[in-house]
Amino acid sequence: MVLQVEDLHTSFFTKMGEVKAVDGISFHVRERETFGIVGESGCGKSVTGLSIMRLLPEPSGQIVSGKIILEGKNLVELSKKHMRAYRGKVVSMILQDPMTSLNPVYTIGDQVGEAVRMHQDLPENMVEAEVIDVLRLLRIPAPEVRLKEYPFQLSGGMKQRVVGAIAMSCRPRLLIADEPTTALDATIQAQYIALFEDIQEKTNVAIIFITHDFGVVARICDRVGVMYAGKIIETAPTRDIFKNPKHPYTIALIKSVPQLDKKDDRLFSIEGQPPSMMNLPKGCRFCPRCHVALDICKEQEPPEVKISENRSVSCWRVK
C-alpha cells in the first residue's frame, strides 16, 4: 500500500464560516495502481490532492482531522520542514494548466534540474544527465536541445510533458495528477494518457488521477472513487462502475457522458445544482437532486456500505 487516506476532513475557514470542502473521505492507492477521483467542479477533488501535498492555501485552508499515510508516515503530523523533504521526492503533483505551470523566465533545464538538485545528492556534472534522463522518460524529443529552451518556445502538449518531467524527476512513489489532460486537445490528450501508462510501467509509481471526465477514467484508472459535495459516495474497480453503477449519482454521471453510437437529441444532464458547502442538507447530500430518494434520505446520512471486496457505496437504496 503506497497511500492510505483515513477519514480526511479539510475545511476552509472564511469570514462567512467554515466550508467543509472535504468531509470525511477514506481511500487507498496501491503500488502501480491508478486511482481515479471523479466529480463535478467544487466537489472537493482538487482539495483532496492539495491536502495530500499539504499545499492548501494558507491560512484559510486546513486539515481538520484524519490521516494521510504515505509509505507508513502520517503526512498530517509531519513538520513543515519534514513535509518539504517529502514533496517532489516521495509525492508529487501535476497541475491542470500547462500554459501557466512553468516559470516563464527560467529554462526547462533550470526548472527540472532544480527539483533534481533539491532532493538528490548528485555532483553538479551529473545533474544534466539526470535531467535528460527524465525528459526522455516523458518522451520529450531532443532533450539536449529542450534543456536550453524557455517555456514560451514549447507547445502546450510539450509543456505538459515538461511539467510531468518535473513531477517525476525524483521518481516519486505517488503522483497526483489534477486534471492534467483537461487543457489539452483530444489527440494530445490520448498521447498523454498513453504516456502515463508507460511511466507507471517503468517506475511503479502509484497515481491519483483527478478528473471530471468519465471517458478519461475508463482509459487510465484501475479503480475509481466518485466524489460528491466533499464525500466519496462510491468506490469500485473501473470495469464494475461502468457495468453496474450503484449510487444514483454515479448512474446519472455515467449517463451524461456523450456517446457517439447513440442518436439522442439531447445530452442527459443532472437537474439542479450541488448543495452549498456552507449549508449542507441534513440527510444524503445528493437527495435534493435524486429521483429515487426515500423518506430516510432526507433525514439521515447514508453510511458507507461495503458490498464486496473492492466496492463500497453510501446510499440507503443499496444494501
Binding site: R87, G88, M93, T100, N103, Y106, E114, A115, M118, A167
Partner: peptide, 26 residues
C-alpha cells in the same frame, strides 16, 4: 497567485527560493 509558484512548492523548494527566485524575477 500563479500556478508556477504552486509548481515550485510542489518540487519541495524552500519558501525563500520560491519567493526570491521564482516570484521576484517575474
Amino acid at each position: 497567485d500563479s500556478e508556477y509558484i504552486k509548481m515550485a512548492r510542489i518540487k519541495g523548494l524552500p519558501e525563500r527560493t520560491v519567493i526570491w527566485k521564482h516570484a521576484l524575477r517575474n
